[in-house]
Every structure is written in structure tokens, then in C-alpha cells.
Design a protein around this nucleic acid. Structure first.
Lengths: 164, 164
DNA sequence: TTAAACTTTCAATTATTTCTGAAAATAAAA
DNA sequence: TTTTATTTTCAGAAATAATTGAAAGTTTAA
């Protein structure tokens, strides 16, 4: 397989993965491009590689930087900003975990917390309280798992994990 | 808080969670409605509760059943089909894990496997091979984690987990 | 059979999300 | 300062995804 073709496949696959995780497909593809590049890239190079507009590139690059999965880089004598990806997959996983926890788990836990005060004795109220309780329990457990992931080092985590 | 209001909040929150996981919002809301109901519901009741069309309701209910997170139920003397949700959150988590593994992790692992044969010695080829290798490693680890989740019982899993 | 009750499908519509490109803003150099 | 390079914004356009509703399909029972 030729390099170009392989890169294209990787970029598509990574984009697809992002999309099914509720992450903008282009954002994930930019990340893939940065992952594959041995050196930082500027906006124009990314636009060229993915055939996208400046506005689109700019917005999604900034989002990647906000997530902490890409970084800015400056080259002396050049006014352009360059970008490179976090390449450590474990670090990447941790950053994504952190964002998703913030954006999804925490709002759910908050809502569930507010719902723990329903009064009444109808079947529906009982069912509500049961569901809220068990969902809250599950969410808290998921949260503490993510906390653990984010705290431990890769080696430690997987070594521990292998204890099965 | 009144029951109606609490139910509405739960349904919205659950739908939101689903949406950010790449699951159709309505599908997640139907699941929420079924979770809250002490008894199985028919299509018309779900349409009524969520104010959606028959086609929409039908399609998403079927999808929930296909995921294995809702079940059909028949009531004697009634021709309609009724549906109820899997209510065990752990079982729910396992079912969702299974689907997501199938839909996302496996395709990625397949693609990465196909990309492990790039020849050449340029910086770009080296980078490609590095990225493919580490991504593949991470994906396989995620896979074995999900396998573990799906194999163990809730109590065992969390007890084991608490060993930290 | 035929009819009634219910489920499924799908073309057309509507809603939502993403993308573009040009203008405005910002920052560095002349 | 003024000019030039670069980044950012955002209204409208385009693309994508979700939804509707009516017709077709199925199943049960009279």
C-alpha cells in the first residue's frame, strides 16, 4: 500500500470514529492529519490536505487546542502559527476522558441529583425513584473510573488491569 | 417537584446524553420513557408522551429492541405490541458496550490492521507506522476492557474495581 | 374471504449541523 | 504610522440527519 493511500484510510477511519463519538468529523480528521505529520503544520497545510475552508479549519483547530489534544507551535522567522498533535495515545485518551466527563457525566449527575425529591406513592413515583437512584449510582461509578484513569499512569493502569 | 416535571427533566437529560454519544436523541428519549414506566407501553402511548409521529416512534423502538435494551411484550386479548425497557443499569451498560464495540472499535482495529504494511524510510512513513502501532495497541486494550465488563457481574466488577 | 387492527416503509419535508468565504479584527513589520 | 501577514468571526449556503404522514404490508378474527 502506498503512503498516500494509507494516510487517507487512517484519516477517514479516525474521522468516522470521532463522528460516532459525537465529535465533529472534520475535527477528528484534523487530529488524524496532525498525528500523521512528523512536524507541526500551519492552517494552510491542513486546509490543503483536507480540502476544507479556512473558517472550518480555524474553528476546528481551535477546538482541538481547547480539548488539549493539539498544541500551538511557533517557528522563528515565521509569523504563522503551527500546530501539532498530542501523540501519546494514553495522554490522548485521558484528555478525551476529561472532556467527556465534564460535558456528559457531570450534567447527568447534576440532573439526577435534582430529581431525588419526588414525593408520592404511585407506581410511577416509585419507578421514577428507582430509576433515578440506579442511574445515579451507575453514573457515579463511571465517574470514579474516569477519575482513576486520569490519575494513573499508563503502565500502572494496564498492569493493574491485567490482574483481571 | 411534581412527577410530570421530574419525568420531563429525566427524559430530556437522558436524550441529551444519548445525543452526545452519537445515539439518536428520540431513541434515547423513548428509552427514558420506558425506563420510567412501571408497565409496558404501546406505540401510541409513546407517540403521545413524546409528541412524535408513528413512523418515528416505530423506527426508534425497533432500534432499541435491536440493541437489546428494550423488549417486546404481549398482553392477552390485545393485538398491540407493548414494549418495556431493560431496567438493570448494569445490563444496560453491558448492552451498550457490546453495540459500541461492534460498531466502532472493531472497524477501527480492522483498518489499523490493514495499515501495518507501509514500506519506506521517510519521516512520514515512520510516523505513520508509529501512530498505527500505538493506536492499535490502545484499541486492543480498550477492547479487552469492554470484554471484561461484559463478562463480569456488576458486584464482582465493582468490588474488583475498588481495589484501585 | 373480508374487514379491522395494527405495523412497517419511504418519499417528501423539516430541522439541525457543518461549512464557506469574505469582511473584520489583530498582530507584526516596515 | 502605514502596510502587510495572519487569524477570527459569522451570516448565509450546503450538506446531513431526523421526522412526518399516508400508503402499503401484515396479522388476526369475524
Amino acid at each position: 500500500m502506498k503512503l498516500e493511500e494509507a494516510q487517507q484510510k487512517f484519516i477517514q477511519g479516525w474521522g468516522q470514529l470521532g463522528a460516532s463519538w459525537g465529535i465533529n468529523r472534520t475535527m477528528a480528521q484534523i487530529q488524524a492529519v496532525l498525528l500523521l505529520s512528523p512536524k507541526p503544520l500551519c492552517t494552510d497545510e491542513i486546509m490543503e490536505k483536507l480540502q476544507i475552508s479556512r473558517g472550518n479549519a480555524n474553528m476546528n483547530i481551535r477546538e482541538l487546542v481547547a480539548w488539549g489534544v493539539a498544541y500551538k507551535s511557533f517557528i522563528k522567522g515565521d509569523r504563522k502559527e503551527y500546530y501539532y498533535s498530542e501523540k501519546d495515545m494514553w495522554e490522548l485518551a485521558k484528555k478525551v476522558s476529561r472532556e467527556r466527563k465534564k460535558r456528559e457525566l457531570e450534567p447527568l449527575i447534576k440532573i439526577l441529583g435534582e430529581l431525588q425529591t419526588i414525593e408520592g406513592s404511585s407506581e410511577e413515583v416509585k419507578e421514577m425513584n428507582k430509576v433515578v437512584k440506579s442511574a445515579g449510582q451507575m453514573a457515579k461509578r463511571a465517574e470514579s473510573m474516569l477519575d482513576l484513569v486520569m490519575k494513573l499512569e499508563e503502565k500502572v493502569f494496564f498492569k493493574w488491569f491485567k490482574r483481571k
